[in-house]
Design a binder for these strands. Structure first.
Lengths: 123, 123
DNA sequence: AAGCAATTTCGATGACGGTCGTAGTATGGA
DNA sequence: TCCATACTACGACCGTCATCGAAATTGCTT
């Protein structure tokens, strides 16, 4: 790795950090925009259905990997999911309890509707 | 009024009819798309807050009248509101109970979030 | 019949967002 | 040290949608 002509050694063990917003800083508009996309709802539904954290690569989705990355960051910036690295893989968790505090009933209602409307593999 | 060169008399008393979808025909995607727009959420919030039907012209909104007309039809086609004519004015009602049946908790959660986040006059 | 008030339709415009492929970065293992 | 794996950043493309103003429609009132 080089920077301005100087070889730079990168930190050996510092895990890559991911920025997450406080849910108090997240607007309803952001959350609605995050949840209006069917691919993103599919991700959220799969995450809720799995009952455990999932790595980015394990999701069933109709779009390319780079597009999926984009969707993950939208969800993260809207406070819907939390992400953390484990080695080279990035894990995802629903911030369900926090969302429930911030926007009571919203995520639950969306998830319930997703479950009731399987559609194209919920993705 | 003329049609193919023939003068047509229009019905004298038949109220103009408005088409409304069965809520069973409405997809979650449609509802989400209807509710993601802040102007439309403002309309819905005002309607819920008023406690009575409102004519189109009485809404507080930052957009032009013709744009507002567009938003009303999006809400109607998504099954969120019901519209009917009274003379030259068009009245609007929330289809709250029906929505509750079709997508339990969804509209309520959105309305609660709207109320908690006044923002720019909820519009 | 004429005019007014309420709402709609139409066409144009501009911005935004989902999508992709390619190239890049980080980590773990051979 | 080198490679494979997992994800990300960038730039481009393109369709969709909110917005507007102007003109049209409808019904009430005079």
């Amino acid at each position: 790795m080089s920077f301005q002509g100087v070889t730079v050694t990168r930190p050996r063990t510092a895990a890559r950090m991911v920025e997450h917003p406080e849910l108090s800083q997240v607007s309803m508009q952001q959350v609605m925009e995050a949840l209006v996309d069917p691919v993103r709802r599919g991700v959220v539904a799969q995450l809720a259905g799995a009952g455990e954290d999932m790595s980015c690569g394990r999701f069933d989705s109709p779009v390319s990997l780079s597009t999926l990355t984009h969707h993950f960051s939208v969800l993260r910036e809207a406070g819907v999911i939390r992400q953390y690295y484990v080695g080279t893989t990035k894990m995802n968790t629903l911030r369900a309890e926090e969302m429930q505090e911030r926007f009571p009933g919203l995520l639950s209602a969306v998830l319930a509707a997703c479950a009731a409307e399987p559609g194209p593999a919920a993705a």
